[in-house]
Amino acid sequence: MVLTRNNVNVSGSGSRAMMFAHGFGCDQHMWGSVARAFEPDFRVVLFDHVGAGRSDLSAYDPAKYGSLEGYADDVVEIGNALGLTNAVFVGHSVSAMIGALATLKAPGMFADLVMVGPSPRYIDDEGYFGGFSRSQVEELLEFLAENHLGWSAAMAPAIMGNPDRPELGEALTNSFCNTDPDIAREFARVTFLSDNRADLPNIKARTLVLQCREDIIAPPSVGEYVHERISNSRFVMLNATGHCPNLSAPEEVTAAIRAFV
C-alpha cells in the first residue's frame, strides 16, 4: 500500500539502507546515477512524493500534505514498511528538511542525514536571509499555473502506473519529473512558505550539509545557517553550481556522501 502509493523502488545490497528523496519539481529519476553508485554496498531505496512521478495521485490529501509534516510521515511509513533502522537518508532541496523531520519522528530509523541544498525557510525574515520575498513566491506560483510542463489530464493514468497500457507511458512528452499541476502548485506553496528553523537544534542525526555555489534557491549562507544549528553536522561546499548537483555533478555528490558514510 505505502510502497505503491510512493512508487518505492528498492535495489542494491548491503547491511545498511540508503534512502534518496527528490525535491520540488522532479521525481526519483533525479537520483538515478548517484543512487546506482551506491547499489554495490547499500540497500538503495528510491521513491516519489505523492503527486510526483509515478506516485498514486489519488492518495493526495490536501490536509495531510498541507505541511512538510505530511511528507515526513510518508518517509517514516516507507521506512516502517521496509523495516529500516540505522539507515542513511539523502534528501535534495525541500526533502532535506522533510528527512530532518522524519529523523525527529522516528529516532533510530535514520542514523545519518545528508542534506543537499537545504533551506529551513525560503522567505526572508527579520535577521534571517532566505533569498525569497513573498511576492517572488507568488510569481513562482503564477509560473506554475501557466506551465504544465507537458502534463495533461490524459497523462494521469499513465503516471499512476498502468502496466496493462504501456503505450500511455511512451506517449509522454516528458517522461521524467511529471507532476500533477494542481499538486505541484500546492507543493510549491508548502515548500516555499515553510519555516522549520526551530526544528534544526533538535536534530540528533549525524548530518552532512552539501552546498552548491551560485544556488539561487538555497544560497550558501542558508546552508551555513543549517550547519550552525545542527550540532552534529558537517558542511561541504561543492564545486558544482546551481541547485541540482545530483544531476549536474553526480560524481562529486557521490564522493562527498561516500566520504561521510
Partner: peptide, 8 residues
C-alpha cells in the same frame, strides 16, 4: 522554475 524544473 529553471532551477527546479527545467535544468533537471
Amino acid at each position: 522554475a529553471y532551477e527546479t524544473h527545467l535544468a533537471p
